[in-house]
Design a protein around this nucleic acid. Structure first.
Lengths: 227, 227
DNA sequence: GACCCGAACCTACAGCCTGTAGGCACGATC
DNA sequence: GATCGTGCCTACAGGCTGTAGGTTCGGGTC
């Protein structure tokens, strides 16, 4: 076996594919090395450590998700755009379970500030443009829509809906209904100019760029929520 | 060091505490043994393997969560009960991050059918009784409410809302508003008798007992979503 | 009170994983 | 053709899981 001429990008891509095929936890340096026909130690020239591999999958996945969202909402607005947004997430989660799991882990600083993360946020906000949310409610809406989508897909992936595929599709339909309804009659006031209670719109301005994904990725697992 | 006279329950309790203090991933057989002043191999008489420890934490947490929900919704109904329900989740997640993380993992069969799991579901349905949902929509509502709560808390735990505590509290307020509004004007028809589309109420009867938590726990991490 | 037995914990070990250190070899460059 | 750097290697230290088999303590029995 001569030189494989690996690159960091190639290693990360292989890692992401391995995660999709064998499950997120199967992404070990050893398994990855086996996959690439190389000794484990050799990978450390291309990748700092295992955590860097996982972070790499996260960012890779973020970019791919942004691409999918982009095409899913193209030429659509309002409820249709929202449908495209959530469907893009669901299809991505189903087709790329390992990549999707990576998105649920806390993102490292660099990933959170990455161009991919910003693209995802921009696309979500583009969808919200079809609803007339007060400026200050954008952040909250992003968080809640993200929470619901990720929460639902998490439950689905964990098998909580197992063996009831028909009902699951109906539930998914309700997700769209509920979110569309919520955005249409947003509690903070639905008028473009902040109407009134219970939030003081304008108090929270739009997120400064660079603050990164303010509430859609990453998601669960409180691994380091240790106090 | 004489006999420690460990019990399975004691080991699991120590494991749960360790998870809360050191993070979910810190729950290794080795660390647990150190904690208990015992050699790693000794634990295998009390616990089948590491997975059994994690499952044990899951079920333990489920019971504790049920207790908290129970007191949080006692004597309340409608929006107040819903507020108690979601607040109980949030407080539990904040105070017991390790236990809460355990709840996000796929539950094993036994845990899913456990009495604790059933208690949680019953309590949620008790809250829904204050809203006039068609029978067939109970499942969907449970899933969506569970998805939103878990999704939000997941984002919070992952630090996605980091350094914006005020906004986070506002967002949390919106969660209650949105869920209350959704339940009040449920898309499948809000009348006690299933009005009409888009779901055929009655087609899906109430969940058979034994089917266990149909959509609130467990949650994310598609570890075994490998096709 | 001597004996026995089982439970509780131990040591030892095999196997896999991460990450570091240092070596060799191939190929590009001069 | 000699040199140098990069790409991958072997070797190893240290940690974790889980199995096998030994030892000791304490309670029941006669």
């Amino acid at each position: 076996m001569g030189r494989m001429n690996l690159t960091t990008a190639g290693v990360l891509r292989a890692a992401a594919d391995l995660a999709d095929r064998g499950g997120y936890d199967a992404v070990t340096v050893s398994a990855l090395a086996r996959e690439l026909g190389v000794q484990p130690a050799s990978l450390y020239s291309h990748v700092r450590d295992r955590a860097a591999v996982l972070d790499g999958i996260h960012e890779l996945a973020l970019g791919e998700l942004a691409d999918r969202i982009s095409t899913a909402i193209a030429g659509r607005s309002g409820r249709n755009a929202l449908a495209g947004l959530i469907e893009a997430h669901r299809v991505f989660a189903a087709e790329r379970p390992g990549r999707w799991t990576a998105l649920q882990r806390p993102a490292d600083e660099a990933t959170a500030r990455s161009e991919s993360a910003q693209r995802v946020v921009s696309l979500i906000w583009a969808v919200f443009r079809g609803y007339e949310l007060p400026e200050g409610e954008l952040v909250h809406a992003t968080r809640i829509v993200g929470a619901t989508i990720n929460g639902f897909l998490g439950l689905e992936a964990a098998g909580s809906f197992a063996h009831r595929p028909v009902e699951t599709e109906q539930s998914w339909g309700r997700v769209l209904d509920v979110l569309d309804g919520a955005l249409r009659a947003w509690p903070g006031g639905a008028a473009p100019d902040g109407a009134a209670a219970p939030g003081h719109p304008g108090a929270d301005a739009a997120l400064p760029a660079g603050t990164a994904a303010p509430g859609i990725h990453p998601t669960p697992t409180a691994q380091e929520a240790t106090p």
